[in-house]
Design a protein around this nucleic acid. Structure first.
Lengths: 232, 232
DNA sequence: CGCTCGTCAAGAGCGGTGCTCTCGTTTCTT
DNA sequence: AAGAAACGAGAGCACCGCTCTTGACGAGCG
């Protein structure tokens, strides 16, 4: 019977979830470096060695938390985008910006885990990729929609893209169908600018300089929208 | 005699330097999380407890490495800027961009220590600030020089800056004397865009997407220059 | 029913960590 | 020369990730 076998699998899945939940709580409190398998086991009233039945190593637990984090951020971004009329491309962009920032401010340690420095001998497990690009997928759709609607009027001239960028642009274009090379460049600029700003804000680079970060962020993202070519 | 007293201080300073040097080697190899006081002591042939005569905790050693890193990066940026004619503002900006990126690629773990996620319970020791802003000082001078020379012609219109940004702009203006509010916004966009790009590149966010990063980076920074208002 | 057999939790243990304390020794100061 | 300050070494504490062994539990099969 699948039910009996499922019963075992079910309790296993449940305990796995409990472990990640407790681990996430510790992550929120102490950050990634403060996460301790023994402390998680203690919290769950089990032996530390039992954890290894569910996660072969601490890195694997962290990877699970990373995937969860990407999904949580991606979902927040998707919801923010969905709440704005499809044709209000500027509003969708700003909604995405604020969704990312709000999530980052609410979950600083998890944001640091996703977009801060990865562990030294870093190799991104391939199974993190689908979760990791959820927010970027939403963003690409906004740019693509805006371009297709003829809503993009980028100001100023850019130098011609270098020849080797054509292939890279083609890869990026999978997320922004139909968008010309220069708009892809502008799209990359806005996207890296968004995360660059949030990382600066979260990691203390704005200390003693920018105090009303919410206002400065909103205005900066509106300027990014203009450079992308979105209407005011 | 100051010489006799200096003899003690001298050997102390020398050992302090040796400790940071060995620690930096380990940082380069294993990253910040792999740094071990005991391993440093072992490498130096001394007891681990002796290290604490020189650095009260591991965090203090890391802080010293952070300051060294900021200074190394700042010096690289200063040299890169100094090698370009003063009136070639676009060239100075591009030189700074490439200096930051080259340094980051050559010292990824140290870059991660500076601009990646800080330790969880983060409080920036105030004595890191002078070193931390060396690169920004150079950048501010470039923008200020370009503006004073009348070389800035920012394309497109930006929305009016929010009232609360005036005070923040005034603080930033200490590094960019004489620059109007909107140019300060554009300056922040380029600066956060530079570090946002490098962080994305270094922390794996460009994997499977952008392969010729050098070319894409150079072109993107030229586009940033245009948005700032610098001539082609 | 009884008997394997796979799954699991628990405990001990290994080598490592940051950090503290004590205890002689060295080195500078007075 | 005597006292004070700085120093290195060693033992030890509490913690860590991880491994290995042992024993209990429960599902499937003869």
């Amino acid at each position: 019977m699948s039910s009996s076998r499922t019963a075992r699998e079910r309790v296993r899945a449940e305990l796995t979830r409990e472990i990640t939940d407790v681990a996430r709580e510790q992550l929120v409190v102490d950050g990634a470096s403060g996460l301790s398998l023994r402390a998680v086991a203690r919290e769950l009233g089990m032996a530390s060695s039992a954890i290894y039945r569910y996660f072969p190593s601490k890195d694997d637990l962290l990877t699970a938390l990373i995937i969860d984090g990407y999904n949580a951020l991606g979902e927040a971004v998707e919801n923010a985008d969905a709440a704005v009329p499809r044709t209000d491309h500027t509003g969708r962009w700003l909604a995405v910006c604020h969704a990312v920032r709000d999530w980052a401010l609410a979950h600083p340690h998890e944001y640091a885990l996703l977009y801060g420095s990865p562990v030294p001998g870093y190799q991104a497990p391939q199974d993190t990729v689908p979760a990791a690009i959820r927010d970027t997928v939403v963003y690409g759709r906004i740019v693509s929609d805006a371009h297709r609607a003829g809503a993009l009027n980028p100001p100023g001239d850019h130098p011609p893209v270098p020849p080797s960028f054509r292939e890279d642009a083609a890869r990026v274009r999978e997320l922004m169908p139909g968008v010309p090379d220069d708009v892809i460049v502008r799209g990359l600029i806005a996207w890296t600018g968004l995360f660059g700003w949030i990382s600066f804000e979260l990691f203390g680079q704005f200390n003693n300089a920018i105090l009303d970060r919410a206002a400065a962020f909103d205005h900066t993202m509106r300027c990014h929208a203009r450079t992308l070519g979105l209407p005011a």
